[in-house]
């Protein structure tokens, strides 16, 4: 195993930000870490990178305890939300910054730098200054600056958050390919479901400073461990703390007929919004009885405020393996 955190605890004053976090990372793997804002994702990365001291627990790299090591001694490099290129250094000087600190010989350094510029598809930008680059180009240079260190572990903290949506989707495929080609193991933090699925070989869900579920993205999507994970990562209707209906089991109906059939459940709802996504009509339905909303595809157009029925077979109701209450007590 490449990286392992063992019961990692982080407190700010007396507020627990990370509560006994255990995550694993294998060689060459990309782990997506998804969670809502303020769930402790960035703090976890900073602890692993050595930028924040931990309040308890251990961090192991290849079974070796690095908890006491400073950031600059760890074989871990972190990349941030913003590119944070040094504004007074050229693109090349930014890229080889870490090698220079390490004392690499100048020739080797420049060659590695040029090679990196090729890889990030910015050849000829050697002498440019960061302000001359677009946001996406800057973030690519920041990635090069991290990759050139050949870190055993790369930590990416929502690196595309500052980019506009279109650029985001093209750059993330590109980054994934680059990481795979370089065979770098990475933890990729995001709060975007799609991004987490695309980027990660494996997925971990973090909420309120705890890892609630780990697994392949599709597994987590289809079998959320509890209500919180379902609400964050799956599409469907959460019935209560124990039960959930995936969106593909629900049909939208405007008559009462189906309801009376055996083995079906139905909830009344009101259309709150409608739009088209990827060629499908979508509606968002409020379900007053549950106090929840759900987005789902519709076979025809509905107008806002129209009353509808959400119908699903009883045997498609999914029961969470974990109970949220038990989690909180732990």
């Amino acid at each position: 195993m490449l990286l392992q955190t063992v019961n990692l605890i982080k407190k700010f004053d007396h507020r627990v930000v990370l509560g006994r976090v255990n995550i694993n990372l294998w060689d060459g793997e990309i782990l997506s870490l998804i969670g809502p804002s303020g769930s402790g994702k960035t703090t976890l990365l900073k602890c692993i990178a050595g930028l924040e001291p931990v309040s308890g627990g251990n961090i192991l790299v290849r079974e070796k305890d690095v908890t006491g090591q400073k950031a600059n001694q760890r074989p871990v490099v972190m990349m941030f939300q913003q590119p944070l290129l040094f504004p007074h250094l050229t693109v090349m000087e930014n890229i080889i910054y870490g090698l220079k600190i390490r004392g690499t010989e100048k020739k080797t350094m420049m060659a590695a730098g040029e090679e990196m510029l090729q890889k990030i598809e910015l050849p000829g930008y050697t002498r440019r200054y960061p302000f001359e680059l677009s946001g996406g180009q800057q973030q690519r240079v920041a990635l090069a600056r991290a990759l050139i260190m050949k870190p055993q572990i790369l930590l990416l903290d929502e690196p595309f958050a500052s980019l506009d949506p279109e650029l985001r989707s093209s750059i993330r495929n590109w980054v994934r390919r680059l990481l795979k080609r370089e065979e770098v193991a990475a933890i990729f933090v995001t709060h975007d479901r799609e991004e987490a699925m695309i980027m990660g070989d494996r997925l971990a869900v973090m909420i309120r400073g705890r890892i609630l579920q780990e697994g392949s993205p599709f597994e987590v999507y289809k079998k959320p461990a509890n209500r919180d994970v379902a609400e964050l990562f799956s599409d469907g209707l959460v019935l209560d703390d124990r039960r959930f209906v995936p969106v593909d089991a629900i049909t939208v109906s405007d008559s009462e007929q189906q309801v009376n059939k055996d083995g079906f459940l139905a909830f009344k709802g009101r259309v709150a919004a409608n739009w088209i996504k990827a060629g499908h009509h979508m509606i968002r339905v409020e379900v007053p009885e549950l106090g929840r909303e759900v987005s789902l595809p519709a076979s025809k157009t509905y107008s806002v405020a129209e009353e509808v029925l959400l119908v699903f077979p009883r045997d498609r109701v999914y029961i969470f393996p974990q109970n949220n209450l038990e989690m909180e007590m732990e």
């Binding site: 900073k46 600059n72 871990v76 490099v77 972190m78 944070l84 910054y97 600056r145 991290a146 260190m149």
Partner: peptide, 8 residues
């Protein structure tokens, strides 16, 4: 943080 994570 950038400097420290890059080994400075």
């Amino acid at each position: 943080d950038v400097v420290r994570t890059l080994g400075g």
